[in-house]
Computed example of a mutant assay.
Amino acid sequence: MVKKPVKYSPELRAEVVAAYEQGGRTYAEVARNYNLVPETVRLWVAAAKKENSGQTPEARGSIERARVAEMERRIRELESENAFLKKAAAFFAREQR
């Protein structure tokens, strides 16, 4: 007979991952405390690391949006500096005559 997979809450997953990362314990020790299989804990920790490292589509999207926003801010800053330098160059060109 095939067992139906158990659905665990995101809160439990987060708690187990935090317990593993904070305690410096092995997967088996954490799994024993939560009545889980060590492989389940390992998979949850790996998924959390992947999500936090920016390898998921959502994380890549948010990283890309932040990168674009930073580039747009830098472009505005450079355009402002460029406009100031053009005015300064025109002022000094007039002074030379």
Rank of each mutant, 00 (worst) to 15 (best):
W44A: 01
R67I: 02
A14F: 03
E70S: 13
A47G: 02
K49N: 07
V30M: 00
V2Y: 03
S53W: 10
A59K: 05
R42V: 03
S62L: 14
T56M: 11
V68P: 01
P10A: 14
L43V: 02
Y20T: 03
A83I: 13
E11L: 05
S53T: 07
E21D: 14
A14H: 05
T40D: 09
L36M: 15
S80R: 06
E95S: 04
K3L: 15
E58K: 12
G24C: 01
L12I: 08
L12R: 07
A93E: 08
W44N: 00
A28I: 01
Y20C: 08
E11G: 02
A90H: 06
E51M: 05
F91H: 04
R60N: 01
P57K: 10
R74V: 11
L12W: 11
A93H: 04
R13C: 07
K49S: 03
R94W: 06
L12G: 04
A90L: 14
A14M: 04
E77S: 15
K4E: 15
R25W: 07
I75M: 12
A88E: 13
Y20P: 02
Y20F: 14
T26V: 03
V16A: 12
E64A: 13
R32Y: 02
Y34H: 12
F84R: 09
V30D: 00
R42T: 02
R67S: 13
N33M: 08
V37D: 15
P5M: 14
A31I: 10
W44Q: 01
R76E: 14
A69G: 07
T26D: 04
Y8E: 13
K3R: 15
L78C: 09
E81W: 11
L43P: 00
A48F: 07
T40K: 10
A14L: 05
K86R: 13
E79V: 02
I75Q: 02
N33I: 06
V17I: 09
R42C: 07
K86N: 03
G54R: 05
V16F: 08
G23Y: 00
Q96V: 11
F84Y: 06
E70L: 15
G24Y: 00
Q22P: 00
Y27R: 00
P38V: 12
F92H: 09
P38C: 08
P57H: 07
E51V: 02
R25S: 12
A14T: 04
P38W: 11
A83V: 09
E64T: 06
S9R: 03
N52M: 13
R67M: 12
S9M: 05
E79Y: 04
E21F: 09
A28D: 02
K49T: 01
A46H: 03
A88F: 08
A69C: 07
A19G: 03
Y8L: 13
A46L: 09
K49R: 15
A14I: 03
T56N: 13
P57I: 10
K87H: 07
V41R: 06
L12N: 12
E70M: 11
Y8Q: 11
E11Q: 05
T26G: 08
M1K: 03
G54F: 08
